[in-house]
Simulated assay, not measured.
Amino acid sequence: MRGHGQPEISGSESEEESETMRCISCKVEYGRHEAGTCKECYEEASETEEELKREIEDLKAKVAFLRFWSPLDQLSRSHGGPCYTDVVLVASSQDGPAVPVPAHKAILVSRSPVFKAMLENEMEESRSGAIKISDISYEALRAFVNYLYTAEACLDEQMACDLLELAEKYQVKHLKAYCEKFLVSKLIWDNSIISYAFAHQHNAKHLLDASLSLITDNMDKLTKREEYMELVEKDPRLVVEIYEAYLSKQVNTAAHKDSSIKQ
């Protein structure tokens, strides 16, 4: 029985006071009116977040410090030309006079086993100090060399394709994966056949699988398109692979539906 003069406590208020919850960090009990974590855990989490920010800034500073200076940086700032470079790369397929892209042998050798073989052995490129690269534009070659120094590239779909070709040719795996990831992000059913043929040509497995999946999901639309007809004429082997994947997907879908019905 409630004593005289004592305030009446409603059922909801009584339940709220009596109900306890646990801190999501340390699992200590706290009242419902308190925050989702206890004060100690909240302060500790804030300190951890600040620590993480400082570590990220330190890491960025180390990367900036360790990054090898690119001769292309000097070219963009002055007309005096880069210092201490000992090799040039030339895009031999461009129209007009060839513009050399300067570089350091030490960088090329450390980034590419193909350049390493060229420059450490008595090959023409090692003796002449010039490496001619065919079927590539000056812009793509410049972007390629810049990536070897900075691990950065400004990509559109054409540049990503050009750089992926160079990365495949010179076995720069990091750049190839970078370009492949970009091209996969740009995949739509409309460009899936062209992307599939390109990926097959340059051993880009991630792009190949993603393209093939889109193709098999849109066979009714794609088989009527001009690029599909061209693929039939130029490389029927790829068309066979596409149909094999399509039929396999149909069989698996049918089997899954059948098992769902039985359950």
Rank of each mutant, 00 (worst) to 15 (best):
V88W: 04
D73G: 04
V101E: 02
F144P: 02
W69H: 11
K62V: 06
P113K: 08
A130F: 01
S76Q: 15
A117M: 07
G129D: 00
A106V: 12
K105M: 08
D86C: 07
S137P: 07
L141E: 04
A98Y: 02
I107M: 13
K132P: 03
L66F: 14
L89S: 05
I107N: 11
A64D: 10
V88I: 06
S110Q: 13
S137L: 10
S134R: 06
A151L: 15
E139V: 11
P97D: 08
D135E: 13
H79V: 07
F144H: 00
A151F: 14
T150Q: 13
A140D: 11
D86E: 03
E120T: 02
V109G: 09
Y149Q: 15
Q74V: 14
G129R: 02
F65W: 14
V101S: 03
P102D: 01
P82V: 08
K116E: 15
S76N: 14
A151R: 15
I136P: 04
P71R: 12
A61N: 12
Q94L: 00
D73T: 03
L148F: 14
L66A: 14
G81D: 05
P100R: 10
S128N: 05
L72F: 09
S78H: 03
V90W: 01
Y84G: 03
Y147R: 03
E125L: 07
M118P: 03
A151M: 15
A91Q: 00
I133K: 04
T150C: 13
V109Q: 09
R111I: 15
V87F: 10
S112G: 13
E122W: 11
L72D: 09
F144D: 02
K132V: 03
V88G: 04
R142H: 09
D86G: 06
V99W: 00
E120K: 00
V90R: 02
N146F: 10
Y149F: 15
P82E: 09
E139I: 09
G80L: 05
F68V: 13
S76T: 15
A130D: 04
G80A: 08
A103C: 05
N146R: 13
Y149H: 15
N146C: 05
S70R: 12
E125H: 06
P100E: 09
D135H: 05
A61Y: 13
A140W: 11
G96A: 11
Y147S: 02
G81Y: 03
Y84C: 05
G80S: 04
